[in-house]
């Protein structure tokens, strides 16, 4: 539906231009800054249930937004907001946030869990979650320094089946215990 609106806007651009004195269409920064009220300035989140978008993989952001838009990925406000953007705008925002400086967080994590999680990451997850989860490859998101409550909420959604786990991830996650998963999330939260 958002595409229809864009087409309509394009078709009537003569009207729009005459009504507003020559303004360029919303830039990537203009679009992205509006998100920062909840996701932090330049996408560096200070809120424990909101993910940082700074230095996130562009594909992961675009993928998430498209799934929010279609309803494939469960959400509260994100589905409603994602519907307000065209695919081109979503690409622009993904690109913008992917280029922002990595946002390191300082969180209370359990040292023993971090140690255990580090080994589990190395053995199970490191082929996709590169560089201790600091590097987002394609649609694999950056995990490092994300807030622990956010990571836990997403893992709950995955395990309840509400959020669909990628097949490769499901294979690896299935044999892991609850304690293993908890340790992994503590590890990712600790990486700076």
């Amino acid at each position: 539906m958002a595409m229809k609106w864009k087409k309509w806007a394009l078709a009537t651009s003569v009207l729009a231009v005459s009504a507003i004195a020559q303004a360029a269409p919303p830039s990537a920064a203009m679009l992205s800054n509006a998100c920062a009220g909840c996701h932090g300035t330049n996408g560096g989140s200070a809120g424990p249930s909101m993910p940082s978008l700074a230095s996130q993989s562009k594909t992961a952001i675009v993928d998430a937004m498209k799934k929010f838009k279609s309803g494939e990925r469960p959400s509260t406000v994100m589905g409603r907001l994602a519907k307000g953007y065209s695919d081109a705008e979503i690409e622009a925002m993904g690109d913008y946030f992917s280029k922002q400086k990595f946002h390191a967080t300082s969180q209370a994590v359990d040292a023993a869990k971090v140690k255990k999680g580090s080994d589990l990451q190395e053995a199970n997850c490191s082929r996709c979650h590169l560089d201790d989860g600091k590097d987002g490859k394609d649609d694999t998101p950056v995990m490092a320094s994300q807030w622990l409550p956010y990571l836990q909420m997403q893992m709950e959604l995955y395990q309840s089946g509400k959020r669909k786990m990628p097949e490769k991830m499901a294979e690896k996650v299935k044999p892991l215990s609850k304690e293993d998963i908890d340790a992994l999330l503590h590890f990712y939260a600790s990486v700076k």
Partner: peptide, 11 residues
């Protein structure tokens, strides 16, 4: 410089 059209959010 040229101005940019608004894009805003309320949550």
């Amino acid at each position: 410089k040229e101005t940019t059209e608004m894009s805003g959010i309320n949550t």
